[in-house]
Simulated scan of single mutants.
Amino acid sequence: MHQSPEAFQLAAVSYRSPDAPARFVEALRETGFGVLVDHPIPVDLVEDVYAEWLAFFDSPAKHRYPRDPERQDGYFSHAVSETAKGHSKRDLKEYFHIFPWGRYPGEVSGAARRYRDLAAVVAGELLGWIEDQTPADVRARFSMPLGAMIADSPSSLLRVLRYPPLTGGEEHGAVRAAAHEDINLITLLPASNQSGLQLLAGDGNWMDVPCDFGALVVNVGDMLQEASGGYFRSTTHRVVNPSGEAARMSRISLPLFLQPRPEVVLSERYTAGSYLAERLRELSGRGKEG
């Protein structure tokens, strides 16, 4: 029986389980989020990326790659970080945008690129799960297979994201990531080195997303919501400020935003390109991507 979002508890699903596709897509349907364990992305690769990029963010080298305001690649300091739609305070974070065609720091190894390529393959498989588990009448809305929408997309984005330690001097009301939805098709995110990610449940309460290290978190973006006519919903989520010892530590995360090629038709109203352009205009160029 279809459960209400209020009754649904988000639990990790083993990627290797025979019923993984059904359970994973059920979680996406109920909460907008799914969590996978036993997946093919090596934990040691994620650890390597975390370690060397934490060192990169702690070095002056990051300033050699200032963000390009037009191309939106490179390093984004807190001073040019995002302000979520409906909020007035900038998120407490800094990050580096890696596009397939974009700049990549010479001070780090290619581990982040290897992670991106492997995660993109997994994403294609998960989109196949989603499509296979979607009712035929909803699936008929898709202009092409979901996995084909992201194939060779220049718009898919790996964000290497660092939330610095809290000092106590932060602006009142500022948080690591204010409540928002992602614009893209789906987002893949290996569990961070710290907890803090929460989703807004159907009953209006915030639910912690399981974050055991090695897990892979996947969430629905606005474009999949649009393409599915609302069958899958893009769920509001946030990253809350920690307390105690965790507040004195950096939090790092690696969201991969899977975005269709600009010409891909999402619905009668939008292509992926026109949808993204409209959303960015709504955000006055501040571009809350995830």
Rank of each mutant, 00 (worst) to 15 (best):
F213D: 07
L158E: 01
D73I: 12
A277C: 07
Y270C: 06
I183Y: 13
L185R: 01
R29E: 11
R64P: 04
P165D: 12
P100L: 02
D132A: 15
R64L: 14
L258F: 06
S274I: 08
D222M: 07
V43W: 03
A7N: 14
P190S: 06
F99A: 08
L189M: 06
D73R: 00
A148G: 07
Y104A: 03
I41P: 10
L185P: 03
M149Q: 15
R114K: 08
E181T: 14
E107N: 07
S234Y: 01
T134R: 01
E94L: 00
G102I: 11
G124W: 07
Y104S: 00
F99Y: 15
A277G: 10
P260F: 08
V37M: 14
S228V: 09
Q133W: 02
L54T: 14
D212K: 14
E6G: 09
E70H: 08
E263Y: 04
G214L: 01
I98L: 15
E94S: 03
L127Y: 05
R233P: 09
G32Q: 04
A112V: 00
V239H: 02
R103P: 14
D73W: 08
P18S: 05
A191Q: 10
A11T: 13
Y163Q: 04
D73Y: 01
F33G: 02
Y15V: 06
G32K: 00
L127W: 05
V13G: 04
S4H: 13
G32W: 00
Y231S: 02
G86Y: 04
S156Q: 07
F24H: 00
W101A: 04
A246F: 11
G168N: 08
Q194W: 10
L45V: 07
W53N: 03
R139E: 02
L45R: 01
Q72C: 11
A227Q: 08
E226G: 01
R16F: 08
R269L: 12
D58E: 15
T187D: 09
V121E: 15
N193C: 10
G106Q: 15
P105A: 00
M223E: 12
A51F: 10
V13L: 09
W129M: 03
P40M: 10
L54E: 15
A61W: 08
A111H: 06
P255N: 06
L189Y: 02
L161N: 01
V49P: 00
W129I: 04
A136Q: 13
L126D: 10
G285T: 10
A140E: 13
L118R: 12
P5L: 01
R248T: 14
E171D: 13
